[in-house]
Simulated scan of single mutants.
Amino acid sequence: MKLILTADVPNLGAPGDIVEVKDGYGRNYLLPRQFAIVATRGAEKQVEQIRRAQKARQIRDLGHAKEVAGQLGNLSVSVTAKAAGDSGRLFGSVTAAQIAEAVKKAGGPVLDRHAIEIGEQIKTVGTHAVSVRLHPEVTSEVQVAVVAS
């Protein structure tokens, strides 16, 4: 199946790339999550628009990614979540979107929630390390303090 990526997909490609994938992967994962569109003649004309839109949102280059990584290292980010009693467990878990919003509120750069990689679900109160993929060569770590409401 021939697809045009609309989002950055790890180990596959960047937005605007035309890729060939197995039918099931494209039909069951990439298309429903809107990570890709089917490559038709009309869609191939939109490739340049997709690339321009992504470049406007994306970190410009390696130097800019390192600068943003420095900003993230100096931030103190806290997320307020509803706790489930004295044990410190949360109702639900902290999401990447909540972390991206907390970074923005703390005065940091605007991050794409897809760039935030939460290793293990955050389901307890306390400080947790979260990695942010800023550039294919630059990954930064952010300490997120989860506070009970």
Rank of each mutant, 00 (worst) to 15 (best):
A39C: 09
N28S: 12
Q54A: 14
N11P: 01
K22Y: 10
S93K: 05
R60Y: 11
F35E: 01
R41G: 06
Q54L: 00
I99Y: 05
Y25K: 00
V94Q: 04
T80F: 11
V132W: 13
T124V: 05
A14K: 05
V110K: 15
R60P: 14
G108H: 13
F35S: 03
R33S: 06
G73L: 06
V79L: 01
I18G: 01
A96H: 00
Q58W: 05
S93T: 10
V77D: 07
G13T: 10
G92L: 10
R57W: 03
V94A: 01
P10V: 11
G85H: 09
R51P: 01
V110Q: 11
A56P: 02
I122K: 00
K105I: 07
L12H: 08
A100Q: 02
G92D: 10
L12M: 10
A115D: 09
L111Q: 02
L72E: 14
Q46G: 01
G70N: 10
V19Y: 08
Y29D: 04
K66A: 00
E67K: 08
T139Q: 11
H128I: 10
V19L: 09
D112I: 14
A100P: 03
V47Y: 06
V110W: 07
F91R: 08
K104R: 13
R60M: 02
N28H: 09
S131Q: 13
K104Y: 05
E101R: 13
S131C: 07
I118R: 08
R57T: 07
A36N: 06
I122R: 04
A39P: 08
E44Q: 14
E120F: 06
A81C: 12
E117V: 14
D8H: 14
A129F: 05
F91H: 05
R113F: 08
R133C: 02
L134Q: 11
G13L: 13
A81K: 09
L12S: 05
H135M: 14
T40N: 14
V38A: 11
K22E: 00
K82C: 13
P10M: 10
K22D: 03
G70W: 02
R33P: 00
S76C: 05
K66S: 00
A115P: 06
R27K: 11
G85L: 11
R60A: 15
R133S: 10
P136Q: 15
V125F: 00
K82G: 03
R52H: 00
A36P: 07
N74S: 04
Q46N: 09
A7Q: 15
P15H: 00
A102Q: 01
K123L: 03
I37N: 06
A106D: 08
V130K: 06
P15L: 09
G63D: 08
E137L: 12
D23A: 07
G119Q: 06
Q121C: 02
T95Y: 10
P32I: 03
H114V: 11
R89Y: 12
G119K: 10
R51A: 02
A69W: 12
A36K: 04
D23V: 01
Q71K: 13
V79K: 12
T95S: 15
G63E: 13
